[in-house]
Design a protein around this nucleic acid. Structure first.
Lengths: 138, 138
DNA sequence: AGAAACCGTAACTACGATCGTTGCAGTTTC
DNA sequence: GAAACTGCAACGATCGTAGTTACGGTTTCT
């Protein structure tokens, strides 16, 4: 959803887009868009101008923004579910499970993040344009 | 959490464990354990016997059960959050975003799953035993 | 036979995260 | 001064997960 917004900003990077315009494409509402883009702004991915005629634009070029950047800015909790509470310390397995699992899970999450970092917003724009062109000729 | 249970079954694979014993180590309760192990049973990872003296045991050897097996049996929804509802089809970007994102996300999830498939329950038992030994000498 | 110790499952509550809306304050432009 | 924006807080709806209780079925032990 953050990626959708970034892709739109990259597709029309000659002008700024308003929250309402982006919300329109997401079939959502402007406040939600501002919330998400607010996170992206804190991560220095986008930029906003207030007042009439204001809106959002990218800070870096689309080629320099990866899906991981967007993901890291928005997502907070870990992907793989940990224990809701500490296991029993008096059990031989329970004592060490937390640490062992943490290592494995972090590794797995790293693997996913590396894959996300391999794709940029520019790549997505490219794919959208290609799909759009083939739609026109269909 | 499913992995914790599998590791316990592997650690004491000379006998069956009851839901209550596993719940004890998880600081949880037997019903929750049965729910999770029920999924693992549907995935042919564990086996249960009813009645007095019954309990759970592994179907395959610990070396032949990967973290991905456990993950796939328990987790259902996708890890990466998709759009809650369809985007606007009348927008050039919205039209194709779903398909493009789906590909990227599936690839990323595959990367994570491959990492999970690289570790087996036997590996975890090994790590727990090592940690337990070093605890004894500390 | 009957009690005890198991699993299997459904129903219900509690909790937290996400989504969505409304409302209002601040800022810039026309 | 009105209009068009962002920024932000508060609130309610919804949903998935965790946890509990309750009850029924199955096997073993005495």
């Amino acid at each position: 959803m953050a990626i959708h917004a970034l892709t739109m900003l990259a597709r029309w990077d000659d002008r700024t887009l308003t929250s309402a315009e982006i919300a329109e494409s997401l079939s959502s509402n402007p406040v939600l868009v501002r919330r998400i883009l607010g996170n992206l702004r804190d991560a220095d991915l986008v930029w906003s101008t207030e007042g009439r005629g204001g809106g959002w634009s990218l800070v870096r070029r689309p080629r320099e923004i990866t899906l991981l950047d967007a993901y890291a800015a928005v997502e907070q909790g870990p992907v793989l579910s940990r224990h809701p509470h500490s296991p029993n310390e008096s059990c031989e397995v329970g004592r060490h499970m937390r640490g062992v699992l943490e290592t494995e899970f972090l590794d797995a999450e790293r693997a996913m993040e590396q894959r996300l970092a391999a794709t940029t917003i520019a790549d997505l724009v490219q794919q959208v344009l290609i799909a759009e062109r083939s739609r026109g000729t269909a």
